[in-house]
């Protein structure tokens, strides 16, 4: 459920130059065209959708590697309140 929602936000905000059906939960988003600038737009959309705020330590390339890794980061933020 959360994974599907994140995937939707990625497709809407990350401006990936690839066909949407090629983006799976495990796809490498950087290989699919995510850039450091589009990551910011994606982050803002995720913060708005999930009511979280990415701390500096989670603003890394690793966090935005895939829909799956984003989901884990969101779980972590929710857990730490």
């Amino acid at each position: 459920m959360q994974l599907e929602q994140i995937r939707g936000l990625v497709l809407q905000h990350a401006r990936l130059p690839v066909a949407s059906d090629t983006v799976t939960f495990d796809s490498d988003l950087y290989a699919a065209g995510l850039t450091s600038l589009t990551t910011v737009h994606l982050m803002l959309a995720l913060e708005d959708a999930f009511g979280v705020e990415f701390p500096d330590r989670l603003l890394s390339r690793k966090t935005f590697d895939s829909v799956q890794s984003i989901s884990e980061a969101i779980d972590e933020m929710k857990a730490s309140g």
Binding site: H41, L44, D48
Partner: peptide, 9 residues
């Protein structure tokens, strides 16, 4: 940042 969240994109 808070403002930007309100207007995605």
């Amino acid at each position: 940042r808070a403002e930007a969240r309100k207007t995605p994109g």
